[in-house]
Amino acid sequence: TYTFKVDNKDQAKKAAKWAKKLGLSFQIEKHGDTFKITVQ
């Protein structure tokens, strides 16, 4: 499981695209202005 934080929606979208490309499941949680992405 890999967790990282991004500062904006664009970065969150890029991370989601990357995870989908690799066939991984992911969750994006919004914490105020940051997004926490968990990829597994």
Rank of each mutant, 00 (worst) to 15 (best):
T1I: 13
T1G: 11
T1S: 14
T1L: 09
Y2D: 02
Y2I: 10
Y2W: 13
Y2F: 13
Y2C: 15
Y2Q: 04
Y2R: 07
Y2V: 07
Y2M: 09
T3Y: 10
T3V: 12
T3N: 05
T3R: 04
T3F: 09
T3W: 13
T3S: 11
T3L: 04
F4G: 01
F4V: 03
F4S: 01
F4H: 02
F4R: 01
F4Y: 05
F4Q: 01
K5H: 15
K5M: 15
K5P: 05
K5R: 08
K5E: 15
K5V: 15
K5N: 14
K5A: 13
V6D: 01
V6F: 10
V6E: 01
V6P: 01
V6N: 01
V6L: 10
D7F: 13
D7K: 14
D7M: 11
D7G: 11
N8K: 05
N8I: 03
N8L: 03
N8H: 05
K9I: 14
K9Y: 15
K9P: 09
K9R: 12
K9T: 07
K9S: 08
D10R: 14
D10I: 12
D10G: 12
D10Y: 15
Q11L: 10
Q11H: 08
Q11Y: 05
Q11E: 10
A12T: 03
A12C: 08
A12H: 02
A12Q: 02
K13R: 13
K13L: 12
K13M: 12
K13G: 05
K13F: 08
K14A: 13
K14S: 07
K14T: 06
K14H: 08
A15H: 04
A15S: 04
A15T: 06
A15W: 15
A15R: 04
A15N: 02
A16V: 13
A16T: 07
A16K: 12
A16C: 14
A16N: 03
A16Q: 09
A16F: 09
K17D: 10
K17H: 09
K17M: 12
K17A: 13
K17G: 06
K17I: 12
K17F: 08
W18A: 04
W18S: 03
W18L: 05
W18T: 03
W18E: 03
W18H: 04
W18P: 00
A19I: 11
A19M: 13
A19P: 01
A19E: 01
A19N: 01
K20W: 08
K20D: 06
K20E: 09
K20R: 10
K20H: 09
K20P: 01
K20A: 10
K20Y: 08
K21F: 06
K21M: 10
K21I: 06
K21A: 09
K21S: 12
K21P: 00
K21T: 08
L22S: 05
L22A: 09
L22H: 14
G23T: 02
G23H: 06
G23S: 04
G23Q: 04
L24F: 08
L24E: 01
L24K: 04
L24D: 01
L24I: 05
S25P: 07
S25R: 10
S25C: 08
S25K: 12
S25T: 12
S25Y: 10
S25L: 10
S25Q: 11
F26N: 01
F26H: 03
F26V: 13
F26P: 02
F26T: 04
F26A: 06
F26L: 08
F26Q: 00
F26S: 03
Q27P: 00
Q27G: 04
Q27Y: 13
I28V: 10
I28M: 08
I28Y: 04
I28P: 00
I28S: 04
I28W: 04
I28N: 01
E29L: 06
E29H: 08
E29T: 12
E29N: 06
E29G: 03
K30W: 05
K30H: 07
K30M: 08
K30L: 07
H31M: 14
H31N: 11
H31E: 15
H31Y: 11
H31R: 07
H31P: 01
H31C: 11
H31W: 10
H31F: 12
H31Q: 14
G32Y: 05
G32A: 05
G32N: 07
G32R: 05
G32V: 03
G32F: 05
G32S: 04
G32C: 04
G32W: 03
G32H: 05
G32Q: 06
D33S: 11
D33F: 06
D33A: 08
D33V: 06
D33Y: 05
D33H: 09
D33T: 10
D33L: 08
T34E: 12
T34N: 10
T34S: 14
F35C: 02
F35P: 00
F35R: 01
F35G: 00
F35A: 02
K36W: 15
K36S: 13
K36R: 12
K36F: 15
K36Y: 15
K36T: 15
K36D: 06
K36L: 15
I37D: 00
I37A: 02
I37H: 00
I37Y: 01
I37R: 00
I37M: 04
I37T: 00
I37V: 11
I37S: 00
T38R: 05
T38K: 05
T38Q: 05
V39S: 01
V39R: 00
V39G: 00
V39D: 00
V39P: 00
V39W: 04
V39N: 00
V39I: 15
V39H: 01
V39C: 03
Q40W: 15
Q40D: 07
Q40L: 12
Q40A: 12
Q40Y: 15
Q40I: 12
Q40M: 13
Q40N: 12
